[in-house]
Every structure is written in C-alpha cells, then in structure tokens.
Amino acid sequence: MIEVEQLTKHFGSKMAVDDLSFTVKKGEVLGFLGPNGAGKSTTMRMITGFIAPSSGEAKVCGISVIDDPTQAKTKIGYLPESAPLYADMTVTGFLKFCADVRGLRGTERKDAIERAIDTCFLSSVAHQSIDTLSKGYRHRTCLAQALLHDPEVLILDEPTDGLDPNQKHEVRQLIKNLGEKKAILFSTHILEEVDASCSRAVIVDRGRIVADGTPQELKERAPEGSLTELFRKLTTRDTDEAA
C-alpha cells in the first residue's frame, strides 16, 4: 500500500533523508522510530505529497505521489506533527470543510463526520470553537480529519503527542484496530508504543534505516532484550556530537 523507493531529500547541503526504502502492506502498522531530527517528519511529508523529494519515488496504493499527487492524496489520511487547525471554526464546521474537500456529500458526509466524532471522542466539544479547545482535543480533532474519508493509508506524525495517559491508551488501541484493514505508518519516540500497537518497526537515524523488524525481532537484537537499549545503541545522541 505504501511503497517508498530510494527516497532522498536534502535541504541545501544538509541531508535530511538518505536513500530510504521500505514498504507497508495492508493490515500492517509500521512504527517509525528515531531521535529528533532523524528525518521522520520529512519522510512523511514526502509520502503525503506536501514536499517534493530530491530524488526517489513514493507510491500509495500503486499511485505515484510525484506523478499524480491529487489522486494519491485521496487515498491518504494524514495527521501532521503540529496538528494544525483553523482556529476560527467549530469542530463540526472544520470537519464539514474537510469532508467537502474530500468530495463527500449529503448523508455520506453526515455519517462520515458522526463516525469520526465518535471514534475520536469529540462529541462533547463538537459545536465548540477550535480556539477554545485544550491540546488533547485539538490533537484529536486533527486526527478525526485524517480518518474522515476512511482512507486506505494512514500517516500519523506523533499521534499521541500531548495526550494524557488515558487518551494515549485510546489512540494506541485505535491505531491497532484500524491497522487490521489499513496500512498505517506512524512515527513516535515513545518506545512502549511499538509494543502496544505496531506489527513492525523501523529505527531511523540521520535519514537512514538502521534497524527493521517486528518488535520481537528487534528486542532479540538488543543487548539486554529491551528496545530502549537497542535504540540507544543504534542512534546518534546529541551528546556524542558534542564530544
């Protein structure tokens, strides 16, 4: 469903993503791990067609994001890292706008919005203006937007960021459930999330994949059987740079 081939992005002389290749199949939840600045968000922005890659190819459901971006984007639901929203709208108003953009009409639109509001537990704030919402609600409103059109591919950039422990649990559960029928790529640097919802995980460092496997396989590679140890061993730390 998601095929990434030799994807490369450099900003000036800085290499952000370096020859990255991976695939996510239907029914698979791929956890995208890595330290800050490893190139996770850049990769996701390229797959969703927001920024153009320097070279390489990304395909979604067999459609090239580079050659046919508008068609490819209809297959994707995307939650950007900062969960941006139009603050002057109400939650329902915003979701109506997104549904319109996605070409949903009439009862189809109404049902889609109700379903998204239920799934993301937004019914208590549905008619509230977005600029009065707390961070958790804002994040879930943006998540609702990504689920609205029931896309085949979900790309979620740190979906549990800024949520309280209960909400984190709900979202992980949601990702796991959705993952049975969709292809999901989500990024995180919370390693326990890998166990909780991923069927496979890759660790990225400086734009390259340094480990790839099921959570179990990754743990077996780790010196003491913990993902944290493996993560610390494989990725560069800011403190190393300074030394």
């Binding site: 927001f50 068609q71 984007k73 900062s82 929203l85 139009y86 603050a87 953009v101």
Partner: peptide
C-alpha cells in the same frame, strides 16, 4: 504561521 498550509498541501486539491 498556523501550519494549516500542511493540511491544504496534503488535501486532494491543487
């Protein structure tokens, strides 16, 4: 400034 350009840029529109 609000980052909503990332939503517009990933919606199926030109």
């Amino acid at each position: 400034r609000n980052g909503t350009i990332e939503l517009l840029g990933t919606f199926p529109l030109t």
